[in-house]
Write a protein that binds this DNA or RNA. Sequence first.
DNA 1: TTGTAGGCGTTATCAC
DNA 2: GTGATAACGCCTACAA
Lengths: 340, 340
Amino acid sequence: MRATIRDVAKAAGVSAATVSRALNRPDLVDPETLERVRKAMEEMSYQPSAIARGLSARRSDTLGLIVPGITDFFFNELYKGIDRASQQYGMKVLLYDSEHSRERAFEGFSILSGYQVSGIIFTSKLVTEDYDPILQRLNIPVVLTLTQSAAKTPLTAFRIDEVRAMFDVVAYLVSRGHRQIAMIAGKLWDDRTGELRLEGYREGLRHFGIEYSEARVEFGQYRFDDGYQAMQRLLDRIREVPFTAVCTASDEMALGAIRCLNDHGYRVPDDISVMGFDDLPIARMVTPRLTTVAQPFHEIGAEAVKWLVRAASQPPSPSEIGDYLLPHRLVERESVRSMN
Amino acid sequence: MRATIRDVAKAAGVSAATVSRALNRPDLVDPETLERVRKAMEEMSYQPSAIARGLSARRSDTLGLIVPGITDFFFNELYKGIDRASQQYGMKVLLYDSEHSRERAFEGFSILSGYQVSGIIFTSKLVTEDYDPILQRLNIPVVLTLTQSAAKTPLTAFRIDEVRAMFDVVAYLVSRGHRQIAMIAGKLWDDRTGELRLEGYREGLRHFGIEYSEARVEFGQYRFDDGYQAMQRLLDRIREVPFTAVCTASDEMALGAIRCLNDHGYRVPDDISVMGFDDLPIARMVTPRLTTVAQPFHEIGAEAVKWLVRAASQPPSPSEIGDYLLPHRLVERESVRSMN
DNA sequence: TTGTAGGCGTTATCAC
DNA sequence: GTGATAACGCCTACAA
């Protein structure tokens, strides 16, 4: 059996209350006593029960994280930021995979709150109005990352300016002499991000006086195979609707697109240029290295944690609640050719 | 404030004990009462406190997972297997990243046990004798994945037959007509895996009557850059020590090696063949698609959970404790050329 | 079948 | 500075 606070107390010749204080408010306890208690803890290799602590203090030093899919490539990066920041605050992270299901996401809030998490980070899926009832009952802070809210409950979110990011992509492509630019956009039923990036693409074209054509746009669900197939469709009509560059809504789709291009004898970037989006670690490992937009995953994760920790100690004022846009960055590598 | 078991009890006109039973042993409660209680829970959207439950029942329906690094590419795959299986058993997973530090790994056991986890999965680092004291005090089951134990405490582990796997790689390469086979092996201070794979390589060579040469072996810490640099060193002496194929200890290093080869004007597999190890999702996304050894990550994760759940209910007999080797599989794709 | 009571390991509020 | 003592929300004998 593990030693409890009472065991330590007995060994140190003090009361449990004193041991508790030694742990939480060492400044309130006599240095000598403190020393005795610490020695006792050491000797018994005492580890306070986070469970009991959580029950009693009504907090658990634990953060809940709801992700749509653990295998989504960006997850690791986001998680890294979250984990690092959590540690700084002495927090643990409890992970919940909603498996892209809305019902499971709902359940996630409920279950995590059963663990007394002091806050919940919700990721990458649009929060719609049907989340409101759940959000209302929840008496713990929630923060969004890589997505935003369309619900009534005010929610703060950390993400990039999606529209602007894709606008920048177009601008970059144009600066490299491309005018016939296709897009493999993202589309998921509960995903706003895809639309925003598409909007950025359209704005970019408009800004540079390039006509938008539906025939140059295909959609995919962000994964490799989606990118492959979307490119396949684009290629099917390349004669009628030619393009020299393709921008995509994810690195993974970019890889799929490149693979498809290769399979059809096109070289990247010599024949056709491809742009990714995300700047995942693999982006620099493939040939050609992917030119892409870097999302500040780590920072976003860290900011989310910071926000939650802060919100737990003092409820944020309404003016502090809202969307925070973190800077993205265009990373130039090898998958785009200059036509100039 | 969230509803407690007492609130539900009051609403349903029963005692808290009955609500508890309705939750845990519905068979012991009158169907009508059960119905009333369930309705009350529904209406109040009652979610039992996992914390209180854990404290009282001395179990938490939570599994602890200690990984050396959250950003290690294989992690997602392992986690997926663990998460899926955990769900089946109604378990949550608490993640702890030891950041490749032994001290943090020690701490991980302690912290996780403070969360009353019903078991701990330890990943991919060799468990040495200095873990013994910690392991001894721990009164919860521990299972190893993707690694093994060199400690005194008997521990069960799920992994592949590393030696055999690399032997198979060599055999495959030989069957494709390669005789000059280099290796980029793995090396980490607390890693036995690297040695085993190297051993398999040597055994393979020996079996096919090929002389082993230290000059054909380089080491790396499994990451992309390590693979790149190791290949660089191999290339530096390719005149004196030629090779037509390279096997590696990880897909990531294989990617690095390929990238290095490309940078020096070698084509893969036309000029030099490269084999990966792991079969991560990216293996099929790159050009050339990686020929590699598939580790059964999902199964290993699932088995680990199953074992833990079982061990929690009834302590495993000594004969059940040990190494379980799961089958690996050689996946033939495009990065190896046939010389025949 | 259901209720009462005690306890799980902490923390927090009081006195002392 | 320190020690009782009462929660925290649930589970589990035991009694009814």
